[in-house]
Design a protein around this nucleic acid. Structure first.
Lengths: 201, 201, 201, 201
DNA sequence: GATGAATGAGTGTTCATTCAT
DNA sequence: GATGAATGAACACTCATTCAT
C-alpha cells in the first residue's frame, strides 16, 4: 500500500516536472507570451486540464525557477567544494569558475530562459545575489581566496558584484550576437582582465 | 497651396510620431506583448485603423528603434567629437564616455525598453555593433586614443567588445537589482578596472 | 466507464458535425466569404472557440467536402453496381446515369455549394476526376459498357471527359438561368446527343 | 475651350477605364472579396478617394461587365459577319466559331473573371442568352446556317442552348483541371460530337 | 489523477467608405 | 478632378481557464 502510494507520488512528481520542463523549454524558444497552455500540454504529453491540476495558472509554472537555477549550479558548487581546482592558484580557479559558469549557461537553454524571464520580472528574485545560493556562495569563496592570495584589501562583496556584472554582460552580448563569438574564451578574457585590474590598484 | 499641402503632410508626420511615442511608452511600461493596438490607439488619440495607415503591423512600430537609439547618442557623439574631454587623458575620456552612456540609459526609460526589446529580437540588429553608428563610432575613437596613449597593441575591435560587454552587464544588473546601486559609479569603477587590466598585460 | 467515454466522444462528434452542417448551410446561402465564424457559431449553437477546437481554420470546415460529395454519390453507385438498369441497353443506362446525377445535384443545395466553392479552389481537388471515387468509377463502367455495346473503339477516358464536361455545362447553365429550364430533361437530351455523336464517327 | 473640355473628359474616361481594368484584373486573380480598394487604387495608379469619384462603391466597378463582355465579342462577330468562314461548310464554320470563342476566353483572363463573377451573381444577367448581344447573335446565325445546310428541323434556340451548355462545360472543366488540357482541341471535339449528334436524329 | 470539450473576451489586422484639403 | 488621412465596425483566430466526465 505504502509502495503504491509512493509510486503514485513519484509519478505525480514526474508529471509535474515534465510539465515544468516542457513549459520552460517552450518559453525559452518562443517567449512566455507566445506559448499556449495547449502547446505545453502537447509537449508534456498530458492534457490541458492536468496542467491546472498541478499549477494554479500559467504564471505559476515559472514560479520555482529559483530552485531550478540553484539546482543547476549545485553540482558545480559541489565539485568546487570537494577540491576541484586545488592544483591551480586561486586566481586561476576564479577565472576557471567564471568560464565554467558560462559554459553551463551556454549548454543549458533553460537557464538562459530563466535569465531573460527574470530580467523582465526582477521582483521574483531569481537572479538576486544571495550568498546562501550555491552559485553565489562558491563565487564568493573563489573571490575571497583570490583576494587573500593576492593580498588585496578590496571588499569581497564589491568584487563579486563586478564579476557578476561582467558575466551577465558576456551572456547578454552572446545572445545579442546570436552566438557569434566563443563564449568561454570571452569569459576567460574578461575574467583575466578584471583580476589584472585589481592587481593594478 | 504648397503651404496647405505641407501642413497636411506635417500633421500626418505628427500623427505618425504621436502613435510611435505612445506605443513605445506603453511597451516600456507593460511590455510589447501586453499592449494592444486598441490601447495604443486610445493613448495616441486616433483610430485603430489609422495606426495601420502608418505602420504595417504592431512590430513595425518598433522598427525604427535603431534610428531612435542612434539619435539619442548622436548628440553625445557630437559633443565628444567637437572636443569635449580634450583636457583629460585619453584613459579618463574613455572612462568618462562609459559613464555618460550609462547616465543616458538611466535617464531615458525608452532606451531601456529598446534594450530589452532588442535582447528578445536580436535579429532586428538594434544593438548590433556597427562603427557607422554614432555610439560605436565614438566609442572606438576613444578606445583607439586610449590604446595609443598607453602604447598598447591590443586590437581596438576586441577592446571595444570588452567594453560593450561590460556596459551591457552594468545595465542589466542595474535592472535586476531594480536600481539598487549607483549606475554611473559602477560604470566608472568597471571601466577603470578594464583599463587597468590592459595596462597589466 | 467505456460507455461514458463513448458518450463523450459521440457528443463531440455530434458537435463537430453540427458545426460543419451549419457552416456549409450558411456558405450555401450567402457564400463562403460572406459568412463569419461568429455566425457559424451562433447557427451551430456553440462558442467561437469551440469551432477552432474542431477545425484549424475557416477553410478547414470545407475540407472534407470531397468526402461529402463522394458519400452523396456512393449510394447512387451502389444502386447501379447492384444491378439497377440491367434491363436497359448500356446506352440507355449511361444516359440514365447522367440524368440521375443531375437530379441529385438539383436536389441537394449543399452539393451545388461544393461545386461553386471548388471552382474557385480547384487545387482542393474536390472535382478532380479520379476513378477511385464512386461518381467517376460508375461513370466509367457505364461508358465502357456503352462503348462495348456499340463496338466503338474510342478510349473510355476521353469519352468520360466529354460527358463530365457536358454535365458540368448543364449544371452551370442551370444556375446561370436560375433554374429556368428542366435540368433532367436537358441532361437526357445532351447525353443522347453525345451518344449519337459517337455512333456517327 | 471646347478642346480643353474634351481633353478633360477624355482623360476622365481614361482614368475610369484604368480603374475598371485594374479592378477586374485583380478580381480575376484573387476574387472579388479578396481585393481591397487600396489595392485597386495602387494598381490603377490613383488615389482611393478618386475611385469613389467614379464609382459609388466597390460593387459598382463590376456593373458594366455585360458591356465589357459584349465588346470583347463584337470584334469576333464583325469578322464573322463580314464573311469570314465563307469558304467552309456551315458545319465547319459553326465548329470554328466554338473554337474561336473558347480561344478568346482562354486568352482573356478578364473574361473568365466575368464568367465566374456572373455565376455567383446570375441576377446581373451578364451571361444571359440574348440575341441582341453579339456573341449570341452570331452564334445563332451559325447554327441556323448549319441546320439549313443539313436540312435539320430542330429549333435553333434549343440547339444554341445545347452549344452554350457545351461551351460553358468546357470552360469550367478547363478551370477545374487548371488548364490541364488543350482548350480549343476539346472545343473542336465537343462541337463536332454535337453536330454529329444532330445528324443522327 | 486525468481528460478534453467548451467558453468568451480579447487579439492583431482589414477595409469600404468619408471628407477636409 | 484628385488626394490620402482618418474612421470604426467587422473579421479570423487565440487562449487561459473551467468543469463534467
Amino acid at each position: 500500500m505504502a509502495d503504491k502510494g509512493n509510486k503514485r507520488r513519484q509519478q505525480a512528481e514526474q508529471t509535474r516536472s515534465r510539465i515544468q520542463m516542457a513549459a520552460l523549454d517552450l518559453f525559452d524558444k518562443h517567449g512566455f507570451d507566445n506559448v499556449s497552455i495547449d502547446e505545453i500540454a502537447r509537449a508534456a504529453g498530458c492534457s490541458v486540464g492536468n496542467i491546472y491540476h498541478y499549477f494554479s495558472n500559467k504564471e505559476a509554472i515559472t514560479l520555482h525557477m529559483t530552485d531550478f537555477v540553484d539546482e543547476k549550479f549545485a553540482a558545480l558548487a559541489e565539485r568546487y567544494r570537494s577540491g576541484a581546482g586545488a592544483a591551480m592558484t586561486a586566481r586561476e580557479a576564479l577565472i576557471d569558475y567564471c568560464v565554467e559558469v558560462l559554459a553551463i549557461n551556454a549548454g543549458e537553454e533553460l537557464l538562459y530562459q530563466c535569465f531573460i524571464h527574470s530580467i523582465r520580472h526582477p521582483e521574483a528574485g531569481v537572479l538576486r545575489i544571495d550568498y546562501n545560493r550555491p552559485f553565489f556562495a562558491v563565487f564568493r569563496e573563489r573571490i575571497e581566496a583570490f583576494l587573500a592570495e593576492e593580498r588585496l584589501t578590496a571588499p569581497a562583496e564589491e568584487v563579486l558584484h563586478d564579476f557578476v556584472v561582467m558575466i551577465r554582460g558576456v551572456m547578454i552580448e552572446w545572445r545579442i550576437e546570436e552566438g557569434g563569438f566563443d563564449l568561454t574564451a570571452k569569459g576567460r578574457r574578461m575574467a583575466t582582465l578584471l583580476t589584472d585590474g585589481y592587481r593594478a590598484r
